[in-house]
């Protein structure tokens, strides 16, 4: 564990908590892409199956459970409890165009052709594009509530911090994982446009 990865995990946790609070407090999921939330739940499910087979540390297991619970909790709030406020009309990104290529790519490019490894690779590829429906929805509505933009900033920062973690681990532990690094860079690059807007103008309201 290093400070970059710790800050990244905290940023990730913060993003998920901000989202849950936003939906719970405002009793509305307006402006939030349910499709992205479904993709995140798929990502965590495919990646954290090793929760039952290999124990890394208490921190690792607890965080995996928290991410899984929070992502399914968000889906419950969006599609069941506050279903009436879900903005179908603007959440239209075709997620099958994200899932299928990730499935194919994970079968073609992976470290080991075993079920757990393929699922992990699929989750890494899918996570890198999982935010697209949300960014697409923000661009379509032309704005985002301030709380939603804070959520996106924290979520985008988490993987950017992980890139620093991978640089650190490469020099300090000569450990690196090309698949995670390339996907992580793609994921962070996708936020660049949003980061620019968030930092220069705070995109909410304009």
């Amino acid at each position: 564990m290093n400070v970059f990865r710790l800050l990244g995990d905290i940023s990730h946790l913060l993003a998920i908590i901000i989202l849950l609070l936003k939906i719970w407090k405002t009793r509305s999921c307006a402006g939030i892409s349910g499709r992205s939330q479904v993709l995140f739940a798929v990502v965590y499910t495919a990646r954290y199956l090793d929760l039952f087979t290999s124990y890394i540390s208490a921190y690792n297991s607890i965080m995996k459970l928290v991410f899984l619970a929070a992502s399914y909790g968000t889906i419950y709030l969006m599609f069941i409890k506050f279903k009436a406020s879900y903005d179908h009309n603007h959440d239209t990104f075709r997620i099958e165009f994200l899932i299928l290529p990730c499935v194919l790519l994970s079968l073609l490019i992976n470290h080991e052709f075993s079920p757990l490894e393929i699922l992990w690779t699929f989750s890494i590829y899918l996570e890198s594009v999982a935010i697209l429906p949300q960014l697409f929805m923000v661009s379509k509505t032309g704005e985002a509530e301030s709380i939603t933009s804070h959520y996106l900033f924290a979520l985008g920062s988490y993987r950017a911090l992980y890139i620093l973690n991978w640089i650190y681990r490469y020099y300090a532990e000569s450990h690196y994982d090309v698949i995670a690094i390339v996907a992580g860079i793609v994921q962070t690059v996708l936020y660049c446009d949003f980061f620019y807007l968030y930092i220069t103008k705070g995109i909410y309201g304009q």
């Binding site: 995990d9 090793d50 290999s54 890394i56 690792n60 995996k64 470290h111 080991e112 973690n165």
Partner: peptide, 10 residues
Amino acid sequence: VSRRKEKDEL
């Protein structure tokens, strides 16, 4: 198997 152990990141 070594890869499983190495996967200590979330």
